Simulated assay, not measured.
Amino acid sequence: MAQFSQETSTTGAFVRQPNRFTARPEPEPGRYRLVVSLACPWAHRAVIVRKLLGLEDDISLAVVDPIRDEKGWRFQGTDPVLGIDYLKEAYDKADGSYEGRVTVPALVDTTTGEVVTNDYPQITLDFSLKWRPESTLYPEHLREEIDAWIEPIFHHVNNGVYKAGFATSQEAYEQAYTALFTGLDRIEEHLTDHTYLVGEQLTEADIRLWTTLVRFDAVYHGHFKCNRNKLTEMPNLWAYAKRLFAQFGDTVDWDHIKRHYYVTHHGINPTGIVPAGPDPEVWTR
């Protein structure tokens, strides 16, 4: 947990660092490269939105190795477009004084080699707002309702699992644990008579929730001690998660997900042993 030591409060609560690079570049096909880890839920949703909006030819994709070392995210060999071995090099080029954690997703300008934005909440919104303004993932008439879901999902679910997993006090852990399952229970109830979170159509809110759900049983349930129950034991959420898996489950890399969490977080799993289960085939049954 050394990488996260600066993100722990005096009460033992995990406090995620703010995003340093927040530019919102105008669309210019071919200029920007999206750097992601397939293990990271924040990056995963950028991969999904890029795919759903048909931006693969406009924004190139670079995938880092799932094992993050003391230098941060490394490419699997020198990146052929950016010509760098570590994402940190693009961060340093943009701001040589930056001392925070190097995060993904990051949009890098291929003409300068600099990180333009690591503002993960805004990256996917801008894919809809700027690159594909006709997108139905964040339509204007549903934005207020989408935003009303996004905010609590981020605090209690997306970031909530990290608050539980990286807590260094019992009190901070139990607060995060309670908020997480209160949030999941609320969504479970909502899905009793709704197919999606908003407007009976797939939106940004669903994608943000789903990248946490798809990792829940494989990682968060055990590794982050979010173990009141498994996702498969919440019938509405499980059916919902499987419906979305049928739409973009091909973006999931179980090997990257499991190796990253269980091998990288030495403070939580010092042996580095990666669990054999659960069986990923359960998602397609």
Rank of each mutant, 00 (worst) to 15 (best):
M1L: 12
A2I: 05
Q3H: 15
E7P: 10
T10V: 10
V15Y: 10
R16L: 10
P18G: 07
R20Q: 15
F21G: 08
A23G: 11
A23E: 15
E26N: 15
E26W: 13
P29I: 09
L34V: 10
L34P: 03
S37P: 05
W42R: 08
W42A: 12
A43M: 11
R45S: 10
A46H: 01
V49K: 08
K51W: 02
L53D: 07
L53Y: 02
E56P: 06
D57R: 08
I59C: 13
S60Q: 04
V64L: 01
V64H: 00
P66G: 01
G72A: 07
R74P: 15
G77Q: 05
G77A: 05
D79W: 01
D79T: 04
L82P: 15
I84F: 13
D85H: 13
Y91Q: 06
D92Y: 10
D92V: 07
E99G: 13
G100Y: 08
T103L: 14
P105A: 11
A106Q: 06
A106I: 01
L107V: 08
V108K: 08
D109W: 01
T110L: 11
V115Y: 03
Y120A: 15
P121G: 09
Q122I: 12
Q122T: 13
I123L: 05
I123N: 00
T124R: 09
L125R: 13
D126K: 11
R132M: 06
R132S: 11
P133W: 06
S135V: 05
T136L: 09
T136K: 12
L137F: 01
Y138V: 03
Y138D: 04
P139D: 00
P139W: 00
E140K: 14
H141W: 10
E144K: 10
E144H: 13
D147N: 10
D147Q: 08
I150A: 04
E151F: 09
P152V: 04
F154T: 14
F154I: 10
H155N: 15
V161L: 07
K163R: 15
K163C: 12
K163Y: 06
A164W: 12
A164P: 05
A164I: 11
F166C: 03
A167G: 06
Y173H: 14
Q175V: 14
A176S: 11
A176Q: 01
A179Y: 00
A179M: 04
L180P: 02
T182A: 09
D185L: 06
E188N: 04
E188W: 02
E189L: 14
Y196F: 14
Y196R: 03
Y196A: 05
V198N: 00
V198M: 07
E200W: 04
L202N: 06
E204Y: 09
E204G: 05
E204H: 13
I207G: 00
R208T: 14
L209F: 06
T211R: 00
T211W: 00
T212C: 07
L213I: 03
V214E: 01
F216D: 02
V219D: 02
C226M: 07
R228F: 05
K230G: 12
L231N: 00
W238V: 06
R243D: 11
Q247W: 03
T251W: 10
V252W: 08
D253M: 02
D253T: 05
D255K: 11
H256Y: 12
I257K: 00
Y261L: 04
Y262D: 01
H265I: 01
I268S: 03
I268A: 02
N269R: 12
N269L: 05
P275L: 07
A276D: 14
G277K: 04
P278K: 11
E281K: 15
W283C: 09
W283E: 09
T284A: 02
